[in-house]
Design a protein around this nucleic acid. Structure first.
Lengths: 343, 343
DNA sequence: CTGTTAGCGCATTCAA
DNA sequence: TTGAATGCGCTAACAG
C-alpha cells in the first residue's frame, strides 16, 4: 500500500536513504556503489545505480560540501557588469567553469568600495572556494585583501599588491601590433589619436605605438593626441590632423569609438579610406567595427581567452598549486578589415 | 599552552563550537544567543556575541542549508550573456538579490538547448531555491519544464507555456509612445523603418506604431519597411524614403542601430535633423544614442527595472506565494534628445 | 563484500 | 536560563 512507502515521495528530492531503501542496501553501501568505490559486489552496484536512476537521485551538494569543507563554487566579483570590457572576461570564465562541476556566483560592485566589501564578505560567508575579481579598466587597483582564506585571481585590472596574481591584456603589444600592421601594408605617415590619458590603457597603447614606430625607423607625423574615448573626440582630432598633415596616410585610434569618429570625419572631408588614409581601432567591438564605413580593422584584446585563463589559474590555485603572483600579460591579436586594406 | 587550545586555530573558519568554547557556554546556547532567541540571559548573550565577533564567526551556509532545506541561492540562466538586451536585466536581478541575503549563480546557455539543459540540471543539483531565465530576444520560447521543483520566472522572452510566469517589455506600447512623441512635437508625415520581421520585437513595435498613427488620425507615408537590425539597413531604407517621400518629416527606426544608419544617410544627403526630419530609435543604447549626430531620441525598454521586477517576483514565489502565471508586460519610457527636438 | 558508527556545522527539540 | 541530544544528507572509518 502507498502508506507503507517509507521513503521517496516524489516531490522532495530523493536522498541517498531513498536509493538505499529502494535497492535494499544500507546507505553506506549505496554511497560506495555510486561513488565507484571498490569493495562493492558488481551486482549490488548495478541495483543501486538502477535505483538511483529511478528516483533521479542527485547528491545534495550541501551535505557533500559540509563533509569535505569545500563548496565547489567560485565568486566572480566584477566592477562593471554592463561594461563591454569586463563582460567578455566574465563570460570566458563562466564558460570555463561551467563546463566543469564548479558553479559561479556573480556579484557586481559597480566600482563602489562599499559594495565591493559587501559582496566580498557575502562570498566569503558563502564559503566560495575561490574568487575572480574583474575590474572595469586596466588601471592597477587595490587588492581585495592580503589574508584572504581563498585564492584570488585579478583579471583585466591588476592588483597593486605584487603578491597577488593578475592577468591583463598586453596593451603595449597591442600598440606595436597596430603599427606593424600599418607599416606592413605600406603606410609611412602615421598619427595616433589616443584616448583619455588618465587611463593606463591609453598610455600603454601609446607606448607600444611609439616603440614600434621607432623600431620601423619612422616617427609619428604629429604629437600623440590625448582626449576622450568618444566618437566626438575622434572627429575633432581627425579634422585637425587632416588640416595640418597633408601627407598623413594612417591613423591609429586608441579605441573603436574614436576610430568610428575618425572614419565619419574623413568621410565628411572627402578623404577616401583606405585609399588615402588607413584607420585602425582597438577592442574589436563588434557593434562598431562591423557596420562602419568601411568595416574597421581593430586590435582584439582576447578578453574571453583572458577570462578562461583566469578561470584555469584559479582552478590550479584552488587545487593547491602555489603561484608566485605578479602580473601576467596576455597576447592580443589584430583583426584586419577594409579600413586598412592595402591599396 | 598553545597545544591545549581546543578550538579556533586562526586559519580555519571559526565554527559555532569555537564561539561557544570561547564564551564558556554550550553550542546550543551560543546558537540561541546569536539568533536572537529569547530564553537567553542578556549577559550570556553579550558574552557570546563578543566571542563571535572576536573570532569573526560566520555561520556556515551549507550547515544551515542542510538543516532548513534551502540554499539561499538562485540561478540566473541567460541565453545571451554578451548581449545588450539580456545583460541589463541580469544586472537588475543581481542588484535586487545582491542587496539581500540570496546569492546569484550565473550560467550562459548561449541559445543552445543542450547547454541549457546542462546548466538547468547543474542548478537543480545545486539546489537553487529559484530560477530566472533570461532570453536573448522577446520571441516566446520553450518552457524549461512544467514539473520543476522550484519556481521559475521568465524574463524578456516569455515562456510558451501559459502556466509559467513571464515578464517582458511592452513593445507595442513602445511603438505607440514613439509615435505620440513625434506627433506631439509637430510631425505629421511619418515613416517606419522596422527591423527583421522574423523578430516579434519588430512586429510588436510596428503594431504599436500603426495603432498610434491611426489613433492620431494619420497614416504612415510609406508602407512599413522590414529589413535587418543593422546600420546598413537604416542607411539603405532612409535613402529610398527620402527619394520617394519629399514631405517626410519623421522617421521611426525600430532600433538605435537602424536609427544611427538613418542619421548617417540623412547627413550624407544633406537633410537636416531635426529641422526637416526627426529621427527616433529604440533601446536607448548609450553607446549609440549619446555620440551620434545629433544625439538620438530613443525608447528605453527599462531592462534593469524588468530584472528587478523578475527578482522580486521570484522572491515572492520562493516564499510560497502562488501566482497565476501568464505574461506581464512592463512599461517602457521615451528619452528625448536632439534628434526629435521641436523646431 | 556489507553494515554500523561517527561526524561535518548548525538549529531545534526536550530535559534539567 | 542552560545544555544534552537529535538530525539535516552524506562519506569515511571501522567492524562484521
Amino acid at each position: 500500500m502507498a502508506t507503507s512507502n517509507p521513503g521517496f515521495d516524489g516531490r522532495r528530492a530523493a536522498t541517498l536513504r531513498d536509493v538505499a531503501a529502494l535497492a535494499g542496501v544500507s546507505i553506506a553501501t549505496a554511497s560506495k556503489a555510486l561513488n565507484g568505490r571498490d569493495q562493492v559486489h558488481p551486482e549490488t552496484r548495478e541495483r543501486v545505480i538502477a535505483a538511483a536512476a529511478k528516483v533521479a537521485f542527485r547528491p545534495n551538494p550541501m551535505a557533500q560540501g559540509l563533509l569535505r569543507g569545500q563548496t565547489g563554487t567560485v565568486g566572480l566579483l566584477t566592477d562593471d557588469l554592463v561594461g563591454r570590457f569586463s563582460l567578455p572576461i566574465l563570460m570566458g570564465a563562466e564558460d570555463e567553469f561551467g563546463s566543469g562541476s564548479v558553479s559561479v556566483f556573480l556579484a557586481d560592485a559597480r566600482g563602489d568600495a562599499i559594495r565591493q566589501r559587501h559582496h566580498l564578505h557575502a562570498f566569503l560567508d558563502r564559503r566560495v572556494d575561490g574568487l575572480i575579481a574583474v575590474a572595469s579598466n586596466t588601471d592597477p587597483r587595490a587588492t581585495l585583501g592580503r589574508e584572504l582564506p581563498i585564492p584570488v585571481i585579478y583579471a583585466y585590472g591588476p592588483s597593486l599588491d605584487p603578491d597577488d596574481t593578475s592577468l591583463v591584456p598586453d596593451n603595449v603589444s597591442a600598440g606595436e601590433i597596430a603599427v606593424e600592421h600599418l607599416v606592413t601594408t605600406g603606410r609611412r605617415h602615421l598619427a595616433l589619436i589616443s584616448g583619455d590619458e588618465a587611463y593606463l590603457a591609453a598610455r600603454d597603447r601609446t607606448e607600444g605605438v611609439q616603440r614600434a614606430v621607432a623600431a620601423a625607423g619612422l616617427s609619428l607625423v604629429e604629437q600623440v593626441m590625448y582626449g576622450s574615448w568618444s566618437e566626438a573626440w575622434g572627429r575633432t582630432a581627425t579634422r585637425a590632423l587632416v588640416d595640418r598633415v597633408p601627407e598623413l596616410d594612417g591613423i591609429i585610434c586608441a579605441s573603436d569609438q574614436i576610430a568610428r569618429g575618425s572614419l565619419d570625419a574623413l568621410r565628411d572631408l572627402g578623404v577616401p579610406v583606405p585609399e588615402r588614409v588607413a584607420v585602425l581601432g582597438f577592442d574589436n567591438w563588434e557593434a562598431v567595427v562591423a557596420d562602419s564605413r568601411p568595416p574597421l580593422t581593430s586590435v582584439d584584446m582576447n578578453f574571453e581567452a583572458l577570462g578562461r585563463a583566469a578561470a584555469r589559474r584559479l582552478t590550479q590555485a584552488m587545487s593547491g598549486e602555489r603561484h608566485a603572483g605578479g602580473v601576467e600579460k596576455l597576447p592580443v591579436r589584430l583583426v584586419a578589415r577594409a579600413s586598412t586594406a592595402r591599396v
